[in-house]
Structures are given as C-alpha cells and as structure tokens.
Design a protein around this nucleic acid. Structure first.
Length: 549
RNA sequence: GCCCCCAUAGUUCAAUGGACAGAACAGCGGACUUCUAAGCCGUUGAUGUAGGUUCGAUUCCUGCUGGGGGCACCA
C-alpha cells in the first residue's frame, strides 16, 4: 500500500513540475481522524519551486485523487500544506485480506534482498558468568538480526567471547588455589573470577602470580594449566549456549579471543611497517588524536595484543570465513569510543572492510540500587534474572512453559521498548511487574484473539460494517513499520507499533462482539489478520507468542 | 584537562525539522451478568537554562547548568 502511494506521489510531483527526487515524508498523521497516510511533499516541493505551499498542496491533492482512484476515499489538504489520504474501505479490506492470506509471509520485505549481513552480539567472556548486561546485547542483537532477515538479507550471527587475558588468569588462579582440576559449573567459575579479582587488587603476591599465569596461558606450554583452561572454557560455553537457547538465539560463528590474536597481531605489525601504527614506549599504538579519536594501545610493551588488536583481527577473520556486504557489531555503549579508534585504524588498513562495518551501541542496564560489577561479585546473572522473573510469572501461569514465555516476553519488551543506546534503568521489583505497557500486554491481546478463533464454529453473520474498524486501518501499516525498524536498526519502533496495535485490538474486543454477531465473518477475518500481524511482529522481536495465558 | 552521549508529566519511556508533544505506571472518576478484567472508557499533569538558524525547533547550531561514559600498555 505504501509503495503504491509513494509511486502516485512521485508521479504527481513530476507532473506538477517538481524536480526529480524531491525529498518528502510519507507517514501516519498524528490523529487517525485525519486519514491513513499523510505527506509533506507539497511543503517540500513548494519550497523548492517558490510556490505557495497551500495552493500547491491543493494541486497535488487533485493529482493524487486521479492517480489513486478507488484506493482513496478522501484526500484533503490540512495545516500548513499537508496532504492527508484516507483509504477507501475496499483498499483497507484488500490489505486485511492480504494479511490474512499471507500468514507468516505477511510483512516480509525485499529492501535488502540478496545482501549478506553479518551481525555480532552477546559477546560473553568465558570464565565469567553472563550477567544482565549481556542480556541486553543478546536481545537487541537477535531482534535486529530477525528484522534485517525480514527485509530479505542473508544473515550470519556471530559472537565473540574473551577466553584469554588477565580476566581468565584471575579465574584460573583461584581455581588452582582451590585445587579444582575439573570445574563443575558456571557459578563455580564465576565465584573463582570474583575471588581472583579481589586478590589481584589487594594482594601483591597474588597479582604477581596472576600476571605470570596470564603469560603462561598465552604461551600455552603448561599442559596441566591448559587442560584446566580448556575444561573451564567448555563449562562456560555450555552455559552460554543454554542461555542462548532459552533466549531463542543461536550463533553461526562462535569466535574467541584466542582465534583472533594471531591474525590481529600480524595485521597490526603490518600496519606498523606501513606507518599506520606507531611505537611508543615499547608498545604499538594508534595515534588517533589527529582524527579526533582516542589514542590507544594495540600491542602492549609485553608483546601481548590488547582487545583493540583482537577486534582488528576479528574483522579480517569474519571476512575470511563469511564474506559480507555489511558487518554490524552490537556492544554496550561504554565501548563506543574504543570502536571509533578501532574503525579509524581499520579504515587505514582496509578501507572497504571499515566502510561496511558499523558499531551499534546498546544501553547499559542499571539497577536502581547502583551499578553492578562482576568484579565485586554482586552481579545479577542473566540466568538468575530469568529464573526470578519466570518464578514470578508462575503465580498466574501454573504451566511452567507459559510462565517462561511470559517472563521472556516481559524481559525482552523491557529491553526493546527503548531506543537502542539509551541506558535502561530498572527497579527489579517494578520491572518484574507484568502489567501495563509490557510484553505480557501484547501476548495477552494475542491470546484473546486466539481464544475467539478457537471458539468459532463457522461464520454465521455476513454483514459488512459501514466503515473499517480502527484496528484494521492500523494493521495496514505493519509492513512499513517492520521495514523501517530494520532500516533504522531500531526495534523500539516495532515495539511501539505493536503496543498501539494491541491497544486497538483490546478496544475493539471490548466494544464489539465477534461470535454470533451480524458481521461475524468480517470480524473473524479481522481477528485472524490481527493474530497474524501480532505473531509476526512478536516473532521479529524474538518475543514468544503464547497459545494461552 | 580533552572527547562522546544524555536532559521531556511525580516515575519509566515515545515523538523522520511539521499539525493539539504521545503512552504506561502512580493519582482521580467510570462502565460491566458478554468471545472480555494481565482488559476497556474518561481525567489531572512535562520539553533544564539563555540565545541563534527556520514559514515552522523536543529535534539543527552556540553558551551555561546538571548527569553518564570514555581517554596508551585492563577487558
């Protein structure tokens, strides 16, 4: 529908003498009473042509009436020169029939058809537990992956975990001290990390031992140590996979630090020879000040690579394993500055690779009670958080499977409702609430529609209402919203839309009887289209669509 | 010290340079033997501050105030 209108506007603008490629917006008017679509095309073109906006809008409206024919019921000029289009009931009915018939294909786009996109997210570090912060990246990354896939792109999901470096040494040091040779579970390793961190900061001798361990891990010669390292890593990764499964995500590539050090060091040394990097105090640095980014160390004076060198290595490794047209990296916003430096350096080493790589920051998850830190051992782990919310959801849903779907819906909604990048503040008590503007609100609206459809026995009433219901007119916009959320990498646009859609459905549900009504057939189709739209939308966000609640 | 981000109802969040700044929670007031209450309807309440650009600024620019993050051998 959107495309048809865009084409009509484009043709009308050309006919009216506006320059080709005049930029304008086609959007939903602020009030549904004004119509289904609104454009500022007349304002934009009149400006360029030096004409009176209102007169030009009138001209555009007449031309559009001609072009759109029976699709438009009303085309009016409003305000400073907006042209508002109200769809005819046949055009709305057509869109609803399309939604109903298309099923899971409803809302699928083709804007990125044929493109290969690799997206990196979640990025937990082995030898630590995943905390609620990782939940943000995992949820946002998966939603973006699905949104982009929905526009026709071929997608690869990648995650990049730290499995080497001082943090790992801290954990191994404590495990060794406890005499552990075969780590049993992730929380044991998480505790060891906290213990090692504390010792590193307070005990000079421990610090020395840990630094030595770190070098030994890079060297890889100590067989017993490497065995413990492998075991510990395996236990960590197994737990990560369990949580990813729970969250409905999976990875085509699980990269580790240890995979990227060699290639990273090689590329940086090569760049050093070309003058891209500099030696400074024995370290290899990228002097970013001239480019307005932070100067950072890539290879330390102890000859070990920093995360920056590993990120460079990873960029090459990804390209080698899965050549792409676009590469997205999702991390917490505290890494924004670091990625500016890494991408500035990469732009000098491999301009094409850098040009297609984009860093996307997610917000920090903050507790009302203060910042969390795995170093201080007062983390809320991802697994523990999900468990708590699920427990809470069980009060209303004895079925553990549904409780889990509701809990995950609540958590994901909380994360995805905000514009990506802004911090998420939550009061554990409040965000556990399943009421109001929330995931369960969307899920519940869907369940109500499913209930009606399940009760339905045939279709008796065949009357057609005089005007389309608000819920129908809202559904027409679903494909545009899904496309825009993908284009702008902003899942919150879809979340907001679905919330509005659920509200419109609930209002319809309260005001209209479906089963046994004179318009039963018509209303059943609207209910089916709503269920289809909601299921597809929730699926794109990675929010479960329960059968019952 | 330098760099980046942010500031919107009491609270948590929305708002491509456009129309009357939207929701939700909390508050206040309603409807209801229903396919219906995790719901529905009504209502009170906000753009930190001083300028600038624009026909039009929450949005762009500058100063100020307040908050967060980052800044060479950590990740």
């Amino acid at each position: 529908m959107e495309e048809r209108i865009k084409k009509a506007i484009g043709d009308a603008l050309l006919y009216a003498g506006a320059p080709a490629g005049t930029a304008y917006a086609l959007e939903r008017p602020p009030d549904a009473k004004l119509g289904d679509y609104s454009t500022n095309a007349a304002l934009a073109a009149a400006n360029l042509l030096g004409k009176n906006p209102n007169e030009f809008a009138g001209e555009l409206a007449r031309l559009l009436k001609d072009k759109l024919g029976e699709d438009a019921e009303r085309i009016l000029v409003a305000g400073p020169g907006f042209v508002n289009i109200t769809l005819s009931r046949s055009a709305v009915a057509l869109a609803i029939a399309e939604a109903d018939a298309a099923g899971t294909a409803w809302g699928k786009g083709s804007a990125a058809a044929g493109a290969r996109v690799i997206i990196e997210y979640s990025n937990p570090n082995a030898f630590k537990e995943m905390h609620v912060g990782h939940l943000v990246g995992s949820v946002v990354g998966e939603a973006l992956a699905r949104l982009i896939e929905n526009t026709g792109a071929t997608l690869a999901r990648a995650t990049f975990g730290g499995d080497i470096g001082p943090n790992v040494a801290k954990s191994l040091w404590a495990l060794k001290k406890r005499g552990v040779t075969e780590p049993e579970n992730a929380s044991q390793i998480g505790e060891a990390y906290a213990e090692g961190s504390r010792a590193y900061d307070s005990d000079p001798q421990a610090k020395e031992e840990i630094d030595a361990l770190n070098k030994a891990i890079y060297a890889g010669d100590d067989r017993a140590l490497m065995e413990l390292w492998r075991e510990g890593r395996a236990v960590s990764v197994e737990e990560f996979r369990r949580i990813w499964r729970l969250l409905g995500t999976h990875f085509d590539f699980e990269f580790f630090d240890s995979d990227t050090t060699e290639i990273g060091v090689r590329v940086v040394r090569d760049g050093l020879a070309k003058g891209i990097f500099k030696k400074s105090g024995g370290a290899v640095i990228y002097d970013g000040e001239a480019k307005g980014v932070h100067t950072m160390v890539f290879i330390t004076s102890h000859d070990t690579p920093t995360y920056e060198a590993k990120d460079i290595g990873l960029a090459f490794l990804k390209e080698e394993r899965w050549p792409s047209d676009a590469s997205l990296i999702i991390t917490g916003n505290e890494q924004t500055g670091r990625f500016k430096t890494v991408l500035a350096a990469l732009a000098e080493i491999a301009p094409l690779l850098a040009a297609k790589t984009r860093h996307i920051a997610t917000g920090f998850l903050k507790l009302v009670s203060g910042k969390m830190s795995s170093r201080e051992g007062n983390v809320i782990t991802a697994a523990g958080f999900i468990r708590d919310v699920t427990e809470r959801a069980r009060k209303r849903n004895p079925d553990p499977l549904i409780a889990e779907q509701v809990a995950l819906g609540a958590i994901k909604y909380m994360i995805l409702r905000q514009a990506p990048g802004s911090d998420i503040i939550f009061d554990p008590e409040k965000s556990l609430s399943l009421e109001g503007d929330s995931g369960p609100y969307l899920q519940y609206a869907l369940v109500r529609a499913r209930k009606i459809l399940a009760y339905a026995q045939g279709e008796t009433g065949t009357d057609v209402p005089a005007a389309p219901y608000a819920i129908e007119r809202l559904m027409v916009h679903y494909p545009e919203v899904a496309a825009r959320a993908a284009r702008e990498r902003a899942p919150n646009l879809l979340v907001n839309y679905l919330t509005e859609l659920a509200g419109a459905w609930n209002a319809f549900y309260a005001a209209e009887q479906v089963l046994g009504s004179p318009e039963e057939a018509y209303k059943q189709r609207a209910a089916r289209a709503f269920a289809t739209t909601m299921i597809n939308g929730l699926t794109l966000l990675g929010i479960p669509a329960p059968e019952k609640m």
